[in-house]
Computed example of a mutant assay.
Amino acid sequence: MQNLQALIQGRISPQTIDPDQLIALAKQYTQPNSAEYKLLELALNMILASYLEQAQKQL
Rank of each mutant, 00 (worst) to 15 (best):
S34C: 02
K57E: 15
S50C: 07
Q9K: 12
N45G: 11
I23H: 08
L52P: 00
Y29R: 00
K27D: 07
G10M: 04
R11D: 04
Q31Y: 10
Q9Y: 08
Y51E: 14
L39K: 08
L40I: 01
A55D: 04
N33Y: 08
Q56N: 11
I12S: 02
A55G: 01
Q54K: 03
P32R: 11
M1F: 10
Q31I: 10
L42I: 09
S13F: 08
L44I: 12
N33S: 15
D18G: 01
K57M: 09
M46H: 05
S34N: 02
Q28F: 04
Y51M: 10
R11N: 08
Q5Y: 10
Y29H: 11
L22C: 11
A49C: 01
L39P: 00
L22T: 02
L40Y: 06
I17P: 00
P32V: 15
T16W: 03
N45L: 15
L52S: 03
Q9H: 11
A55V: 05
Y51Q: 11
N45R: 13
Q9E: 15
N45W: 09
E41W: 05
N3R: 10
A43Y: 05
A6P: 02
L40M: 03
L48D: 13
E36S: 06
T30K: 03
N45T: 06
N33G: 11
